[in-house]
Design a protein around this nucleic acid. Structure first.
Lengths: 164, 164
DNA sequence: AAAAATGGACGAATTTTATTCGGTTATGGT
DNA sequence: ACCATAACCGAATAAAATTCGTCCATTTTT
């Protein structure tokens, strides 16, 4: 499937507004509603569109604490990595987890109702590998820029297939 | 506005599937479509729902490099903070930015087409504060857990208003 | 305690949208 | 140039969203 100009526009628009009507989307990309719908469906089927989610405003919902944690494993075995990844995956408050190269092994984003409960999660992660893990917690003071999608303009600027 | 059981369910469902039809959503929360729609609209108006976005599968879209960067300012003045925040906000490849307490001042998530272009962004950030900033880059090897919404179950477990 | 007022909820009617399908045009490969 | 494939369009149909009048239940006021 080709990621032509139209498909990029579709992705870009849906990334910013997942609930746009198919008709309005068709207008924006200058296609008929039926063709547009076909493309969207294909993009979903091919897995380019993974999901559609509502972005909630956490502060309006409840008081909470967000923490970015850096994690280093003293024993960098495959088993230790797996064990830790699995734990992160299973703890709902860990909303994001990356394995990285460099001074740390993982970055986590964790959201808890308060510090006390954050501490409980921290302890749980520490206990996992019985002291063989180093976790540094960094409380988020301000979200300067929340994630709002990928910079498609910058990422997809390959040369477009010119017409014949 | 009350965040009762029904509104929580609505938020929870929409967080996982922003494109569910209002009718299906109404079914799930045991309301009539019209009442359900009223609630969703109110949740949008009150700002509890910020946006709806399509979640794209980056690896399927293009090759790219994701980096988590830790940032420390040597001069922790308000001006330096503002300057850096503004820069992060204006660079499209910086998809996320948090101000934190502790050993670092900022965490960034940056997505670039390749290392070379990541390096250019890194340089741009370094130049901003003329050496008065320390940036450590951590290349993401694996996304163990992508963000897929907040753990509402854990965050919103206050006692529900019981009926009379 | 009764009356009034508020806030949802419901269901039917209407408008808008999604979806399907046949026919047509463009595209790519040989 | 030909065939095969893919993509488009537009009209018809099905489904969904939206509106609106009415009806309760809860709360406030008197």
């Amino acid at each position: 499937m080709t990621l032509d100009r139209i498909n990029r526009k579709i992705l870009s628009v849906l990334q910013q507004n997942a609930r746009i009507t198919n008709q309005a989307l068709a207008d924006k990309v200058s296609l008929s509603p039926s063709s547009c719908l076909n493309r969207v469906k294909k993009l979903e089927e091919e897995g380019l569109i993974d999901a559609y989610m509502a972005v909630l405003d956490l502060p309006s919902l409840c008081r909470s604490v967000t923490v970015i944690a850096t994690v280093s494993l003293k024993d960098q075995s495959t088993e230790a990595f797996k064990l830790f990844s699995k734990a992160a995956d299973e703890i709902p408050e860990v909303v994001e987890c990356y394995t990285v190269s460099g001074a740390f092994d993982f970055f986590l984003r964790i959201i808890a109702p308060d510090m006390q409960r954050y501490n409980a999660i921290n302890d749980r992660l520490l206990d996992l590998l019985a002291g063989q893990v180093n976790i540094s917690s960094h409380v988020v003071l301000e979200t300067g820029k929340p994630f709002r999608g990928y910079p498609l303009e910058q990422l997809l600027d390959e040369i477009k297939p010119a017409k014949k």
